[in-house]
Nucleic acid binder design. Structure first.
Lengths: 200, 200
DNA sequence: GTCTATAGGTAGATAGAC
DNA sequence: GTCTATCTACCTATAGAC
């Protein structure tokens, strides 16, 4: 079943946190923020999802804002690191592009709920938190551009192509619906093929 | 100046409403919802932006939810109608695709603030409102698929291509920043070129 | 139709017992 | 570390004067 697999991998990203209430709360908050949005989600929703009282949350997180920041930081680092790791041993430019698009796309399909928090709730971050997140996003964008650069000579076109290709992956988080959409690997493969045509 | 032009055309969409407090409030709400999100925006923000007291809003709208629905309905109808109108006299399949992509993309760049409300705040709509909006979105998606169909024989690929191409346009609303991003026409042209390569 | 004032509800966060 | 109870603040919406 697609839903179960997606949930497993989804939880896997936040497994960077040691097992315990802090991780449980981060998982609960990700589910709620992803479905309803940060401002529509109450601390009571999160606590109930995590199986504890509203007050219990504040033993492990100082605020709702810290919970969002923690999720956002781990998520943003995970996308970047997964893409870096996937391309580590690949040197052929065309193959690097193919694997990048596939990895980035699959990540957003598998982690569509977490990805929605990353992409939609940036403006809900507090200013100091926003700066840190923006820096990670900049790294991801710069890395993507470096992957596409060998096949795009014009710098202006490189910028447009990079934004467009990242858009394809990012927007998967918006429309992806487990059970209704094709499985993540299929989407990733289809998008990698699309981009190959796009860059010729 | 790019900002001024974008604001003019932005306001133009809501000019479907007769001039008066109802239109002024819809414009104010669009600006606030687009910047901060529906749930982070208070009725006081909207009233202040529109230059009236918090209570004044309720003379013209029954609730904050009705304001969102009004904006969402007019905006969704505008995208669909603009695309239909742009393709009315065009029969050549490749040209229809080019003009569709350009129109859809430019619309989301010019109306990026309104477009954010359309794309990000669907889940904030009340159930009855959601049904009506979903029906308009379905029409737009069906129309897009009919435009691409002549150049994509495999039905499965048609669905993937349609989603991907709509994603490109929709995601413009997320990243477009007047003054920093290229002007809307340039983005539309670049994306139309990209899609031409993508469909070959 | 506009305002000031406020009702009624609920949010984030804390106090203090166990 | 968990709970129940609650504080304080603010939000949507209404009442009622002008």
């Amino acid at each position: 079943m697609v839903v179960a697999v997606a949930d497993q991998i989804h939880n896997h990203v936040l497994d960077e946190l040691p097992a315990g209430p802090r991780r449980t709360l981060a998982q609960a908050a990700t589910a709620e923020f992803g479905r309803r949005g940060y401002h529509a989600t109450t601390t009571r929703h999160i606590a109930e999802h995590a199986g504890m009282s509203p007050a219990g949350l504040y033993v492990h997180y100082s605020s709702k804002a810290e919970l969002l920041f923690t999720i956002s930081r781990i998520g943003h680092e995970a996308v970047l690191n997964d893409c870096l790791a996937a391309l580590e041993d690949i040197t052929a430019p065309a193959e690097r592009i193919r694997v990048f698009v596939q990895t980035f796309t699959v990540w957003h399909a598998v982690n569509h709920n977490l990805a929605r928090v990353l992409q939609y709730e940036i403006r809900a971050l507090e200013p100091e938190h926003f700066k840190i997140i923006a820096a990670i996003r900049q790294q991801t964008e710069t890395f993507a551009a470096s992957v596409f650069a060998p096949l795009v000579s014009d710098p202006n076109m490189l910028r447009t192509h990079t934004i467009a290709i990242l858009s394809l992956g990012i927007d998967v988080a918006r429309w992806y619906t487990p059970g209704h959409s094709p499985d993540p690997e299929s989407v990733g493969q289809a998008y990698a093929d699309l981009v190959r045509g796009l860059l010729r």
